[in-house]
Nucleic acid binder design. Structure first.
Lengths: 115, 115
DNA sequence: AAGTATACCGAATAAATTTTCGGTATATGA
DNA sequence: TCATATACCGAAAATTTATTCGGTATACTT
């Protein structure tokens, strides 16, 4: 994997929270795992635009930060499963608020930038 | 300025919201402007770790996205002022939730990573 | 006259993040 | 036997973001 170059900002609570979820797919991963544990391959199916590699890297950081738990089953072919932790669950209201905001304001930005 | 290379993700509401606030200082800028309008130099005083250049760039994007409004006073030396828009204000509950989360969990990450 | 402050922007550089590609290992099914 | 699938990881390349530095212009203060 690659290292977190920028240490988590411990002084500003806002940037602390942001630094845990602001990379490309972390919030989406948490949003998927809130409903059920998933294997990496399932997660990739759920988020097909994310490459397996980036999911791998970001899952590792989420685990390191205590927001996600990894379970390895000692089987072959290998099987592992990622689930959200109780700490991770406390971020769900924030994820939800962002989801809601995005839905509500989608049209505005479509008119502005896209489609 | 430099261009937004990655267009805002219009398909996923979560990533839409994230893309508006996930660069280094945008959430902090909104958190400052919620209380009062500020001039660029004041903002830099409030967020001394951010370089004036990055504040400048991110303010410009915030204005472009309709979250912040810029007022230029036709004076010399030049004066301008940035204020949060009503759309920007609707993001404040999310900012607040992140602030709260960060405060509540600060100790955990200090033990883990720092100090 | 020189220094300071204002806001802003261009461009080079540096740094961080993501993508792409290939490789590890093992078991199952064709 | 060979293709497929699993999870994972290293490394190079590409991309995105931030920093650094210098420059625009003007007015006020020393």
């Amino acid at each position: 994997m690659y290292e977190r170059k920028i240490p988590i900002d411990l002084d500003c609570p806002l940037r602390l929270t942001m630094s845990l979820i602001d990379s490309k797919w972390k919030s989406c991963i948490l949003d998927e795992l809130r409903y059920r544990s998933m294997r990496p391959s399932e997660l990739h199916k759920a988020l097909p635009e994310a490459t397996p590699r980036v999911l791998d890297i970001q899952l590792k950081e989420l685990v390191e930060d205590g927001l996600v738990k990894k379970t390895i089953f000692p089987e072959l072919p290998p099987r592992s499963e990622y689930s959200i932790t109780s700490l991770g669950l406390t971020l769900i209201p924030i994820i939800d608020a962002m989801l809601e905001w995005g839905k509500k304001n989608k049209d505005l930005f479509e008119r502005k930038y896209g489609k």
